[in-house]
Design a protein around this nucleic acid. Sequence first.
DNA 1: CAGTGGTCTAGACCACCAC
DNA 2: TGGTGGTCTAGACCACTGA
Lengths: 253, 253
Amino acid sequence: MTDAQDIAVPPATPADPLPGFKPLYRQVRERLVRQLIDGVWKPGEALPSEQQLAVTLGVSPGTVRKALDDLTAENLLVRRQGRGTFVAEHDHDRVLFQYFMLTNDNGTRSLPESTLVSLEKIRANAQERNRLALAARASVWHIERVRTVDGHAIIRERIILSADRFPGLGDRIDIPNNVYQLYAVTFGVSVARAEERLKAVAATPEDAKCLATTSGTPLLEIDRTAYALDESPVEWRLSRCLTEDYHYLSDLR
Amino acid sequence: MTDAQDIAVPPATPADPLPGFKPLYRQVRERLVRQLIDGVWKPGEALPSEQQLAVTLGVSPGTVRKALDDLTAENLLVRRQGRGTFVAEHDHDRVLFQYFMLTNDNGTRSLPESTLVSLEKIRANAQERNRLALAARASVWHIERVRTVDGHAIIRERIILSADRFPGLGDRIDIPNNVYQLYAVTFGVSVARAEERLKAVAATPEDAKCLATTSGTPLLEIDRTAYALDESPVEWRLSRCLTEDYHYLSDLR
DNA sequence: CAGTGGTCTAGACCACCAC
DNA sequence: TGGTGGTCTAGACCACTGA
């Protein structure tokens, strides 16, 4: 067969409207992402084999492979030789290594425990609407937590979520430590990536109380926006961290 | 031809000593990296074409391509369609986007100007020897600079380098703003990647003087170790940044 | 126009895993 | 043992660049 520059459209899917010519493996990638968004395969489940996907999509195995390689590099899929290709889960390790960069100065990494301070639903202010791309009179959840390692409070965090996107979240008695798994399993929202903006700030009196330190102590403020598979903002999280015995690790490459 | 599980060793290069079986494209990658280290192709220069490399190395074009793809993903090479594959340079854009994460809160990015404060050669202390993997009585350069944007001092930085690896550096009248280009062009040392550890600290009186602020002001401390192509530590850099109008941008994905 | 990287295909065999 | 991903090969054609 020679170049078939577009995927033969199988069942019912709105074909890309003359996209200015994307490579085939790009189109395959986007088809797969859309199916991930639609929940065709859930986190932890296996995709069809490369061979099957190639047949289904009417594309050569090499092209499917390239698309899967890309998605794996983006941490959306996990490949296990001899077993298959799986939808990435927000398990302990992924959250620890991909979404938690605070490291003990002695080099060890661990996820702090969380203690819920408050959980309320309020009308979103302008900044919150902007960060989460919400409509004019939308509401949001405010989750306040203190996070501890070995009984030492090191992080004070506030999480802000669209109340529409996470209905009934406030009725939950327990907010698990790993909220990204909660988002995925209970609300069908998978966090695909995040951006963090870091500043050094002075502890407010309230910070000082939560973190057992003194007002004015320098804290590392982490301002995170997390995005879903469709690039919509899912979560706005503001953390303030004591960095006397910890540091934020960033790899430049 | 069927699988040739090892590269045919052309001229004179010590063949890998039974590596426990690395994939061919890995071996190709390592051969290429070694040639980069040896300066066979200098930053900005073009490598031979994929076709030529394949013939030279006695490997199929697809295998060469995979190795080049990996090196490109690591920012060691740059590919330009229709032109060739080039050794990555530490030009303004690379330094700005790969090695300078401080961003104005309004979203603009730019490299601050540098003002040299002091440059001296001293005996390395234990911590410096440890960070730079130096021998017992080695010496180091200390470069102190203040960095400004629009006349505002926002960063105070100290750079520590092995005096042996950068001979005669102290005789230079000018230390350019872009030191990584200096390392590469003048000393043949290419920085390949770096790790940064971030903390919030209180400004010392000296910090306060350099940055036109008050003692105790929260500063973002960036502790960077930069590594060469052979993974040896090249530079230890300690920066203290005013983050009232700036933030450190970190992508989680 | 010739030369380069970029895409796509097709098929072989290897390494690993579960049964 | 059969199925999966991982590697390697071979060759066609496309897209881009510069002379």
